[in-house]
Design a protein around this nucleic acid. Structure first.
Lengths: 189, 189, 189, 189
DNA sequence: AATGAATGAGTGTTCATTCAT
DNA sequence: AATGAATGAACACTCATTCAT
């Protein structure tokens, strides 16, 4: 209960001020407890950050798996679904996402490796879908699937930096725009 | 001379360890001078970071202008050129770029505003090219030019996080892959 | 307990070396604790100085009030009592007094205002007694009470700079000398 | 020429910000020269402070001597004249005076001794006049001349802390008020 | 007579962490 | 389960002073 509260408020603080600029004191002040309490639940500031990272990426991985395991979807539809998932996530978990992308460097080397492996898995599964689509002729035959996967993630992940999910364009609309661009390009005809 | 050396090595350190985690001591140790020397050339650590930011974005803005002012290029070609410029830049100024994208938060509010304005200008000029291309029918008529500009920048800027310009794929090749994806999409036929 | 110790020793150090010339390190060295301990009890060096100022002036104000509220005293006697109080204070709180008079400038503007207001109150109450004495014909009718109050405080406060309470002249004797000078002057007849 | 300029502006700065809080940089910035220039004229920051002290006290001593050497004056008049001199000085040399009273602690021990000796001389000569006046029966017979001298200086010197020579009360008026208080007291009859 | 570059010791302050209770 | 006191290492920054030119 308290542990979850700490995590939740830390995400807000890390997003707003950054990991380094947020002190344990800042965190416990929000909850009106003392630093001792923090160290009862977390062994270090870094472990808290690791928890946040794992929660974020594990959630994405399992939701990605649900999409990609759905055999009724074409590869094109799988890409569309995963793009939609990522863009919609900005609204509900944008803070976590920004912390995830920005603060990984503050983990120690071992934890960085663990997180990067999961992050790579997420990307590699997208790469596999692209590869599958090439095989099924849904996608162009000469695509370098790995680079395309990076390109897709660039479009979606960069959105965490600028997209306002409460603005004029809804997450669903943005996901459709980006899906179209990636799938069909912008050139006319 | 020394000022340039400080800037150069700071970029490397900021890239590797992050702005907060890099101390003035770290910086001057590399050059074998004292902290006093640092403060002779820079009024604060933040001013050094601002210098780095301005150097980076001003350079990009002027090169972008050269491309966009070239009336012999189509709008499609202009986009290709600017994508190529950004991807090739990873090789020569990748460190600066990563610092630019990651550490802006450590500037004070006024400086953040200044940098963001320039960064927005860079994006808005891309948006204008997309808009122009729509008018000339080079691009599809129903494109939201603003979102597309964000999409293009997502693809290129995210590359700073993963692309190894000395690896199997050359910057020129990657630029072509991304240009094709953005312009023509990945769907076959 | 420790907080009081810090305050006590700081007063000695500030008196001897001055506020600026006394470092936090100097202070904690005396008590054999670390700088962290200092900042556990005080938010800043300035706050410590403010504490010292408030302790000093609040004490004087309350003792002054006790004297001036004593309706059995004439206005002349009230002045004598307050002069005695100030001179006797040199022995017990001379260090605090010297810090108070000398180091106020190192407070921030808001704190300076707060302290000056209290200091002014102390003076204004003396002015009121002079004014009362004029009304009751104890004192000469044409006295500018405000300037006289400054004059009285000049005589007493300046004593903090030179008077040795353990020397040939006792505090009580000095108070009497100054009371006589102020009340009756030095001219004969 | 430049040396005098440095001294002049230093006095203003030392008065406003205090000796410690004023850097050599602050001083040379006002004159738009470099620190090297400062060290061409002064061997150290402290020497500048010593110059200021000596200028101030030597001037007072010589003017005091002119008054006390004037054999046409009674001892009472001599005191009146010296009080007038000191109060009028607030207008023309108030900055120097405040620096003199406040910053002496920043001199080294040898210089402190030199200045204190001169300051003591100034006081001792006042004491002598009081003593003379006692002999001539101008003043009361049982006065402790030394304490009275301190009292007189308290009244005048403290004025540097509060008296505004451009306010409602002129220096001449204030000098008269204080002379009357010291000579005749404030008690009526 | 004056400069500009450089020094190095010191300053106030922050903060993750520990630990007895 | 939680606290309060204490630590100590680190940090950005200041500044009087030096010195070759």
């Amino acid at each position: 209960m308290i542990k979850e509260e700490i995590t939740k408020h830390s995400i807000q603080l890390f997003e707003k001020k950054g990991f380094s600029q947020t002190s344990i004191q800042d965190i416990v002040d929000v909850l009106d407890v003392t630093k001792g309490t923090f160290y009862y639940y977390f062994s270090s500031k870094e472990q808290l950050l690791m928890d946040i990272h794992l929660q974020y990426i594990d959630n994405l991985l399992s939701r990605q798996q649900m999409i990609f395991d759905n055999t009724s979807l074409t590869n094109k539809e799988k890409l569309e679904e995963v793009i939609l998932m990522l863009i919609k996530d900005i609204k509900e978990r944008g803070s976590s996402g920004r912390v995830f992308f920005r603060e990984i460097r503050h983990l120690n080397n071992m934890n960085i490796s663990k997180v990067k492996e999961k992050r790579n898995n997420f990307r590699l599964r997208i790469e596999e879908v692209v590869q599958e689509g090439i095989k099924t002729k849904e996608f162009q035959s000469d695509l370098p699937a790995d680079m395309i996967a990076f390109g897709i993630l660039g479009v979606t992940n960069y959105s965490y930096n600028w997209f306002n999910p409460n603005g004029d364009v809804s997450p669903e609309e943005l996901a459709e725009i980006f899906s179209k661009m990636i799938l069909n390009g912008i050139v006319s005809g």
